[in-house]
């Protein structure tokens, strides 16, 4: 297994206000697998994604990437781990306002020893004609596409997507999902996508349902359909 999550527990607060967000999560993903984490608000899916991404820590349990445990990593090693292996896409695009589309993507490329070709990515993302624009000149969908470009340009082993379509309309959301699908198929990255949109599960290789801090369902999607055909 490429990504293994074993017995992850996480709680917030202390005493009477202590809330257990993750109550012992186990899961495993193959390299190149497209996994969707589904669940209602507060089910712990974003927390789990953040722990996998090394920007939050677990109280108990261990995560292995390519067989290597993350738990013993210090702050600097974690940063290097994110730098070398991870790409992040958030609901908020968080683009740098005074850099152009191309430069925002370069921000990601800078971190990689073998970045992908930026022009190709711009083409793939349909941003070639907007390459010289600033984020304020773009629509929400275009901004999210730029954020995807920034995440994938360094060709990460794992692409973590936290509600990437949460702020977008139906049509734009589908465009973004198609792009993530293309990226997954073209570059073979492992994708973990958090969403509360039940329909999105249909495009995944694996669907994991979380509720109340626990994995309620973890199964391979045998009826996978292209993002293009998703309806909600």
């Amino acid at each position: 297994m490429f990504l293994e999550v074993k017995g992850i527990k996480k709680a917030f607060g202390e005493g009477s206000s202590r809330v257990e967000v993750l109550k012992g999560i186990d899961l495993a993903l193959e390299r190149g697998e497209f996994c969707v984490l589904l669940g209602p608000s507060g089910s712990g899916k974003s927390t789990l994604l953040n722990i996998i991404g090394g920007i939050d820590s677990a109280d108990e349990g261990e995560i292995f990437i390519g067989g290597e445990p993350m738990g013993k990593m210090k702050e600097k090693q974690l940063t290097m781990y994110r730098r070398q292996h991870l790409g992040y896409i958030f609901q908020m695009y968080n683009l740098i306002p005074n850099l152009t589309v191309r430069e925002n993507i370069e921000v990601g490329a800078y971190l990689s020893k073998n970045p992908l070709n930026i022009d190709e990515i711009l083409q793939t993302l349909g941003l070639a004609e907007h390459a010289g624009k600033l984020p304020s000149q773009l629509s929400g969908g275009q901004q999210q596409r730029t954020a995807i470009g920034r995440a994938i340009v360094k060709n990460p082993d794992i692409l973590l997507c936290d509600e990437p379509t949460g702020a977008l309309d139906y049509k734009t959301s589908k465009e973004i999902l198609k792009l993530i699908e293309t990226v997954n198929q073209t570059y073979g990255n492992t994708v973990v996508m958090v969403t509360h949109n039940d329909a999105i599960k249909n495009m995944a290789d694996r669907v994991i349902r979380l509720r109340d801090g626990q994995v309620r369902d973890n199964r391979v999607n045998t009826a996978k359909i292209p993002a293009e055909e998703l309806e909600w």
């Binding site: 991404g53 920007i55 600097k76 940063t79 290097m80 781990y81 994110r82 730098r83 070398q84 991870l86 790409g87 992040y88 958030f90 908020m92 968080n94 683009l95 740098i96 306002p97 921000v107 990601g108 971190l111 920034r150 995440a151 360094k154």
Partner: peptide, 16 residues
């Protein structure tokens, strides 16, 4: 003002 951007950059692997 740029907390979100900084958070994203740090998540991507930019060091402090």
């Amino acid at each position: 003002k740029e907390a979100g951007v900084i958070g994203t950059l740090r998540s991507m692997g930019y060091t402090k």
